[in-house]
Design a protein around this nucleic acid. Structure first.
Lengths: 341, 341
DNA sequence: AGCGATACTGCAATCGATTGCAATAACTTA
DNA sequence: TAAGTTATTGCAATCGATTGCAGTATCGCT
């Protein structure tokens, strides 16, 4: 006989001839319960496919074993969720959370209440928050940090946040990218990205670092604001960069998607990549190795990123002081920037 | 004075000088409560940032206002979560659910218990299930359909499922793609994809439909199994398709990612696209318009897909009979297949 | 004044599991 | 044999909100 109806702990207890308390303890492997009793209860529970009612347990224990992941959307482009990079990160987080026994509640900031944070935490829907992307300096995050809500953020750090930020070492990534372009002989560089985003700003700063270290005048680097899409990269390149040719000879795009848009525009205009203009992106999304020419990029480590987010959050929930982390990035030189083979 | 401590309904009631029952009704806008009382309670609740404890409400009402979304993973490639197409779909689902007042619990089948379904529903973690991708005919889905669990599936239908399936009209998509290739003069076609997946099989069948309708011998179409990644597309093309040149003159890839891999291999081999080999994909992911040559494809409508999934599931939860749906697809002709401009 | 109708409000049970504390049984040890 | 342990188990309160039903005013109308 299987689950004709929904089983409750009370029914299991009755079937086993014990009290609810005993049944509960038996199922949780509480050692204070007699070995035989325990096994009997567990056997009966298994036989009837009994699953503890999570809601009831959560109410009683005042925990939800759930973490809310909030993807901060750029309301203009709605880019976030369709960015391949974020999806990868999300997958890693999902796995990590379930490895630790937590469920994952997903929401987009577009979707969520104006004050997510409260929506999830005050209503005890979730025990903690992972916020992906600060966007253009979101004041709600600062507000959250004034409370005792346990949360961590994926994004860029300028060292001034009073909340834990996990992210790639974007500045170092920017340096690596720029150094590489310079090493390939580029002398007039463009940064394509929106530096109002913290992460992007760091990448840009890293680029400036590298140029200064190499003794280039600061006007050797120009910055052009650009949304996170291939389309934006394409349009910006068409509209603003062709005019700067032929002096312009190197482009560092803030993301691979942008870079692929730029690449399209350049190729349509018959600009040789990398000979006339060298191009490098950021992220290492799956496609970047498969466009033509293949796209050089700075690879973010989603695996360790997701793991760090989860472990820092859980640490914070245990009352420990969480630390911001900057994850190492890796330069991948492919055809779009390698001039001498 | 704000939320120094966690507020409960009882405290709000006390502050308002009413009973818990009245407070509860007032907050839910129950018209039986006096207008003034209602407003007073609501004002006090707002002032103290009171949020109903979702766990307690869920326990009492026996609902969770949560839908679990399960992404069926291909254990070999782990492709699912990083497929840009699925991410888009996920975003739409998230928005739709929250529009209807539901939270979204996300899990991958890799992650979830062997018997997801029971994990979520028996434990009352979720009120319903959206399963994305049947994979290679997952027996667990059949098993689920024997129970009264409310769920819907995104995937391919062969008309024989005894559960509701929402998905693109893959067969029609296959027809469109093949007809297009034939119209461009292609005479030896290859289908690149794993037909053990229901959706992919339908696309393949559609391709055969078109060829038969045009009077081609069935051996004019060859099928080559290929995982869902660009890498797989690249490798399969390299290893198996070069041998079939120059007869082979048209490739229909089961996804854009595969197509982009194939494109890379062809270009490296100096095959002219579309002159020597015309290429078309499926999905219309963001990148497909931005590779060079731009990729022709069959566009799936994620927007209406996500909406249909949610509305059918909710209908089923209300006890209505849900229907399988096949969503219209749209052929997008870009450079990779357009021979005469 | 009397009586039913109407409009609110509150009591108390309930959802299903967890857990502090008390109770009982069994077993030692002096 | 009595007192003291130790091993198990059960009672009952609790988590926080919802809701059926009963209770109390207030009002209208004859």
């Amino acid at each position: 006989m299987n689950s004709k109806k929904m089983m409750t702990l009370a029914e299991i207890a009755k079937l086993a001839g014990v009290s609810e308390s005993t049944a509960s303890r038996a199922l949780r492997d509480n050692p204070v319960i007699n070995q035989q009793t325990r096994q009997k209860v567990q056997a009966i529970a298994a036989e009837h496919q009994f699953k503890v009612n999570a809601t009831a347990r959560n109410l009683r224990t005042q925990k939800s074993y759930t973490i809310a992941v909030i993807i901060a959307f750029d309301p203009k482009t709605q880019q976030a969720v369709s960015d391949p990079f974020l999806l990868e990160l999300l997958g890693v987080i999902a796995d990590e959370l379930s490895r630790h026994g937590y469920d994952m509640l997903l929401s987009t900031s577009k979707t969520a209440d104006k004050n997510w944070g409260h929506y999830y935490l005050d209503a005890k829907r979730a025990d903690g928050l992972i916020i992906i992307g600060q966007g253009e300096h979101d004041p709600r995050i600062d507000a959250l940090s004034q409370t005792k809500v346990p949360f961590v953020v994926w994004g860029g750090s300028n060292g001034e946040e009073n909340y834990p930020v996990i992210g790639s070492d974007n500045r170092q990534g920017g340096r690596l990218a720029a150094e590489h372009l310079l090493s390939q002989g580029c002398r007039q560089l463009v940064f394509l990205g929106d530096i109002r985003h913290n992460e992007i700003e760091q990448r840009h700063l890293g680029m400036l670092d590298a140029c200064q270290a190499s003794g280039f005048a600061s006007d050797a680097v120009q910055q052009l604001t650009c949304d996170f899409t291939a389309q934006a990269g394409y349009l910006q390149t068409q509209q603003h960069l062709f005019a700067r040719l032929p002096e312009l000879d190197g482009i560092f795009a803030a993301s691979d998607a942008i870079a692929m848009g730029a690449m399209k525009a350049l190729l349509e205009h018959n600009i040789a990549i990398p000979q006339q203009v060298a191009l490098i992106g950021f992220d290492d999304i799956a496609m970047s190795a498969y466009c033509t020419p293949s796209l050089s990029t700075v690879k973010q480590n989603t695996q360790s990123g997701g793991k760090a987010l989860v472990s820092q959050l859980l640490a914070r929930m245990r009352g420990q002081q969480p630390l911001s982390e900057q994850l190492a990035v890796k330069l991948l030189c492919r055809q779009s920037s390698l001039r001498r083979l």
